[in-house]
Design a protein around this nucleic acid. Structure first.
Lengths: 95, 95
DNA sequence: CAACTATTACATTAAAAGGTAAAATACGTC
DNA sequence: GACGTATTTTACCTTTTAATGTAATAGTTG
Protein backbone atom coordinates (compact mmCIF):
# COMPACT_ATOMS: atom_id res chain seq x y z
CA UNK A 1 0.00 0.00 0.00
CA UNK A 2 1.10 3.51 -0.79
CA UNK A 3 1.25 6.14 1.90
CA UNK A 4 -1.74 8.03 0.55
CA UNK A 5 -3.76 4.88 0.44
CA UNK A 6 -2.77 4.09 3.97
CA UNK A 7 -3.96 7.51 5.08
CA UNK A 8 -7.25 7.03 3.25
CA UNK A 9 -7.71 3.55 4.61
CA UNK A 10 -6.96 4.70 8.14
CA UNK A 11 -9.66 7.33 7.82
CA UNK A 12 -12.18 4.75 6.76
CA UNK A 13 -11.21 2.46 9.60
CA UNK A 14 -11.46 5.32 12.06
CA UNK A 15 -14.96 6.11 10.94
CA UNK A 16 -15.89 2.47 11.49
CA UNK A 17 -14.09 2.09 14.77
CA UNK A 18 -16.68 3.59 17.08
CA UNK A 19 -19.00 1.01 18.62
CA UNK A 20 -22.13 2.95 17.71
CA UNK A 21 -21.03 3.52 14.15
CA UNK A 22 -19.96 -0.07 13.71
CA UNK A 23 -23.30 -1.23 15.01
CA UNK A 24 -25.10 1.14 12.65
CA UNK A 25 -23.16 -0.34 9.76
CA UNK A 26 -24.03 -3.87 10.87
CA UNK A 27 -27.69 -2.94 11.09
CA UNK A 28 -27.61 -1.38 7.64
CA UNK A 29 -26.05 -4.45 6.07
CA UNK A 30 -29.27 -5.86 4.72
CA UNK A 31 -31.83 -3.07 5.01
CA UNK A 32 -32.23 0.66 5.14
CA UNK A 33 -33.29 2.21 8.43
CA UNK A 34 -34.52 5.57 9.65
CA UNK A 35 -32.71 7.50 12.34
CA UNK A 36 -35.36 6.58 14.86
CA UNK A 37 -35.19 2.90 13.99
CA UNK A 38 -31.46 2.98 14.49
CA UNK A 39 -31.85 4.75 17.79
CA UNK A 40 -34.12 1.96 19.01
CA UNK A 41 -31.33 -0.55 18.48
CA UNK A 42 -28.50 1.58 19.74
CA UNK A 43 -28.75 2.88 23.26
CA UNK A 44 -28.34 6.62 22.75
CA UNK A 45 -30.17 9.76 21.68
CA UNK A 46 -31.56 10.72 18.35
CA UNK A 47 -29.12 13.58 18.03
CA UNK A 48 -26.22 11.31 18.74
CA UNK A 49 -27.27 8.86 16.04
CA UNK A 50 -27.61 11.76 13.67
CA UNK A 51 -24.10 12.91 14.47
CA UNK A 52 -22.64 9.48 13.89
CA UNK A 53 -24.56 9.10 10.65
CA UNK A 54 -23.08 12.37 9.55
CA UNK A 55 -19.57 11.05 10.02
CA UNK A 56 -20.38 7.99 7.93
CA UNK A 57 -21.90 10.20 5.25
CA UNK A 58 -18.82 12.36 5.23
CA UNK A 59 -16.79 9.26 4.39
CA UNK A 60 -19.16 8.37 1.57
CA UNK A 61 -20.01 5.12 3.29
CA UNK A 62 -23.74 5.71 3.58
CA UNK A 63 -26.35 7.83 1.88
CA UNK A 64 -29.99 8.59 2.60
CA UNK A 65 -33.34 9.19 1.03
CA UNK A 66 -36.20 11.18 2.44
CA UNK A 67 -39.70 9.88 2.86
CA UNK A 68 -42.18 12.10 4.66
CA UNK A 69 -40.33 13.21 7.75
CA UNK A 70 -38.20 10.11 7.87
CA UNK A 71 -34.68 9.76 6.61
CA UNK A 72 -33.82 6.29 5.43
CA UNK A 73 -30.16 5.44 5.52
CA UNK A 74 -28.29 2.82 3.58
CA UNK A 75 -24.77 1.74 2.80
CA UNK A 76 -23.62 2.80 -0.64
CA UNK A 77 -19.98 1.75 -0.51
CA UNK A 78 -20.07 -1.91 -1.46
CA UNK A 79 -16.52 -2.39 -0.30
CA UNK A 80 -17.62 -1.62 3.23
CA UNK A 81 -20.26 -4.31 2.97
CA UNK A 82 -17.63 -6.80 1.92
CA UNK A 83 -15.29 -5.70 4.64
CA UNK A 84 -17.95 -6.16 7.30
CA UNK A 85 -18.79 -9.57 5.93
CA UNK A 86 -15.13 -10.54 6.14
CA UNK A 87 -14.82 -9.22 9.68
CA UNK A 88 -17.86 -11.20 10.61
CA UNK A 89 -16.37 -14.36 9.20
CA UNK A 90 -13.01 -13.82 10.85
CA UNK A 91 -14.10 -12.62 14.25
CA UNK A 92 -17.55 -14.11 14.84
CA UNK A 93 -17.34 -17.53 13.22
CA UNK A 94 -20.12 -18.90 15.42
CA UNK A 95 -22.88 -16.87 13.81
CA UNK B 1 -22.90 -9.54 15.51
CA UNK B 2 -23.58 -9.36 19.20
CA UNK B 3 -23.05 -6.18 21.14
CA UNK B 4 -20.00 -7.51 22.93
CA UNK B 5 -18.48 -8.60 19.68
CA UNK B 6 -19.18 -5.21 18.19
CA UNK B 7 -17.39 -3.56 21.09
CA UNK B 8 -14.45 -5.91 20.69
CA UNK B 9 -14.33 -5.44 16.95
CA UNK B 10 -14.52 -1.64 17.31
CA UNK B 11 -11.50 -1.78 19.62
CA UNK B 12 -9.53 -3.75 17.10
CA UNK B 13 -10.49 -1.37 14.32
CA UNK B 14 -9.55 1.61 16.46
CA UNK B 15 -6.12 0.19 17.10
CA UNK B 16 -5.67 -0.22 13.34
CA UNK B 17 -7.12 3.13 12.40
CA UNK B 18 -4.08 5.29 12.99
CA UNK B 19 -1.98 5.86 9.86
CA UNK B 20 1.26 4.97 11.61
CA UNK B 21 -0.16 1.82 13.13
CA UNK B 22 -1.78 0.77 9.89
CA UNK B 23 1.50 1.27 8.09
CA UNK B 24 3.32 -0.73 10.74
CA UNK B 25 0.87 -3.58 10.21
CA UNK B 26 1.35 -3.41 6.46
CA UNK B 27 5.12 -3.52 6.88
CA UNK B 28 4.85 -6.49 9.21
CA UNK B 29 2.70 -8.46 6.80
CA UNK B 30 5.50 -10.54 5.40
CA UNK B 31 8.45 -10.02 7.74
CA UNK B 32 9.40 -9.13 11.28
CA UNK B 33 11.05 -5.78 11.88
CA UNK B 34 12.86 -4.03 14.70
CA UNK B 35 11.70 -0.74 16.13
CA UNK B 36 14.49 1.08 14.33
CA UNK B 37 13.70 -0.54 11.01
CA UNK B 38 10.09 0.51 11.37
CA UNK B 39 11.11 4.05 12.24
CA UNK B 40 13.10 4.25 9.01
CA UNK B 41 9.92 3.60 7.02
CA UNK B 42 7.59 5.70 9.10
CA UNK B 43 8.44 9.35 9.50
CA UNK B 44 8.49 9.74 13.27
CA UNK B 45 10.61 9.15 16.35
CA UNK B 46 11.73 5.93 17.90
CA UNK B 47 9.70 6.61 21.02
CA UNK B 48 6.60 7.23 18.99
CA UNK B 49 6.97 3.93 17.15
CA UNK B 50 7.43 2.21 20.46
CA UNK B 51 4.24 3.75 21.78
CA UNK B 52 2.26 2.65 18.76
CA UNK B 53 3.70 -0.84 18.96
CA UNK B 54 2.58 -0.95 22.55
CA UNK B 55 -1.00 -0.29 21.55
CA UNK B 56 -0.89 -3.09 18.99
CA UNK B 57 0.62 -5.42 21.59
CA UNK B 58 -2.10 -4.52 24.02
CA UNK B 59 -4.64 -5.70 21.47
CA UNK B 60 -2.75 -8.95 21.02
CA UNK B 61 -2.21 -8.15 17.37
CA UNK B 62 1.58 -8.30 17.45
CA UNK B 63 4.26 -9.85 19.61
CA UNK B 64 8.02 -9.51 19.77
CA UNK B 65 11.24 -11.38 20.37
CA UNK B 66 14.48 -9.98 21.66
CA UNK B 67 17.80 -10.35 19.96
CA UNK B 68 20.72 -8.44 21.46
CA UNK B 69 19.38 -4.97 21.98
CA UNK B 70 16.92 -5.25 19.16
CA UNK B 71 13.26 -6.04 19.46
CA UNK B 72 11.80 -7.83 16.49
CA UNK B 73 8.09 -7.41 16.03
CA UNK B 74 5.65 -9.58 14.16
CA UNK B 75 1.94 -10.05 13.69
CA UNK B 76 0.57 -12.97 15.65
CA UNK B 77 -3.15 -12.55 15.01
CA UNK B 78 -3.70 -14.28 11.70
CA UNK B 79 -7.14 -12.75 11.36
CA UNK B 80 -5.54 -9.33 11.16
CA UNK B 81 -3.35 -10.56 8.33
CA UNK B 82 -6.41 -11.73 6.46
CA UNK B 83 -8.25 -8.52 7.14
CA UNK B 84 -5.39 -6.45 5.78
CA UNK B 85 -5.21 -8.63 2.71
CA UNK B 86 -8.92 -8.11 2.15
CA UNK B 87 -8.64 -4.37 2.61
CA UNK B 88 -5.81 -4.34 0.14
CA UNK B 89 -7.92 -6.17 -2.41
CA UNK B 90 -10.94 -3.98 -1.88
CA UNK B 91 -9.30 -0.59 -1.67
CA UNK B 92 -6.05 -0.86 -3.62
CA UNK B 93 -6.91 -3.16 -6.51
CA UNK B 94 -4.10 -1.74 -8.65
CA UNK B 95 -1.31 -3.22 -6.58
C1' DC C 1 -50.24 25.54 13.92
C1' DA C 2 -49.36 21.36 16.54
C1' DA C 3 -46.89 17.02 16.36
C1' DC C 4 -43.16 14.43 14.81
C1' DT C 5 -38.54 13.51 12.87
C1' DA C 6 -34.12 14.84 12.15
C1' DT C 7 -30.25 18.16 12.13
C1' DT C 8 -27.34 21.72 13.87
C1' DA C 9 -24.84 24.48 17.08
C1' DC C 10 -22.60 25.10 21.12
C1' DA C 11 -20.44 23.81 25.34
C1' DT C 12 -18.37 20.31 28.06
C1' DT C 13 -15.95 16.22 28.86
C1' DA C 14 -13.09 12.48 27.61
C1' DA C 15 -9.66 10.21 24.87
C1' DA C 16 -5.85 9.98 21.77
C1' DA C 17 -1.54 11.71 19.93
C1' DG C 18 2.96 13.63 20.18
C1' DG C 19 7.31 15.72 22.11
C1' DT C 20 10.93 15.29 25.14
C1' DA C 21 13.83 13.65 28.49
C1' DA C 22 15.00 10.13 31.58
C1' DA C 23 15.46 5.27 32.42
C1' DA C 24 16.03 0.47 31.40
C1' DT C 25 18.44 -3.26 28.86
C1' DA C 26 22.08 -5.37 26.34
C1' DC C 27 26.50 -5.40 24.29
C1' DG C 28 31.53 -4.80 23.71
C1' DT C 29 35.92 -3.24 25.51
C1' DC C 30 39.22 -1.92 28.59
C1' DG D 1 33.15 -5.04 36.83
C1' DA D 2 32.87 -0.04 35.32
C1' DC D 3 32.30 2.70 31.08
C1' DG D 4 30.52 4.05 26.73
C1' DT D 5 27.35 3.15 23.13
C1' DA D 6 23.13 1.59 20.88
C1' DT D 7 18.25 0.28 21.14
C1' DT D 8 13.99 0.50 23.18
C1' DT D 9 10.74 1.71 26.78
C1' DT D 10 8.59 4.64 30.13
C1' DA D 11 6.89 8.73 32.24
C1' DC D 12 5.27 13.15 32.10
C1' DC D 13 3.33 17.04 30.03
C1' DT D 14 1.00 19.56 26.26
C1' DT D 15 -1.79 19.76 22.47
C1' DT D 16 -5.20 18.01 19.47
C1' DT D 17 -9.07 15.47 18.28
C1' DA D 18 -13.27 12.93 19.23
C1' DA D 19 -17.50 12.15 21.78
C1' DT D 20 -21.49 13.52 24.33
C1' DG D 21 -25.39 16.30 26.25
C1' DT D 22 -28.53 19.72 25.66
C1' DA D 23 -31.21 23.03 23.59
C1' DA D 24 -32.53 25.34 19.62
C1' DT D 25 -33.72 25.00 14.80
C1' DA D 26 -35.35 23.13 10.49
C1' DG D 27 -38.42 20.50 7.70
C1' DT D 28 -42.64 17.67 6.87
C1' DT D 29 -47.15 16.20 7.70
C1' DG D 30 -52.00 16.35 8.77
Amino acid sequence: MQNEQIEAMAKILKSMSHPIRLKILCLLQDKELSVGEIREQVQTTNANVSQHLNILRGQGIIDYRKDANFIYNKIIDKRILELIKKMHLLFCPNF
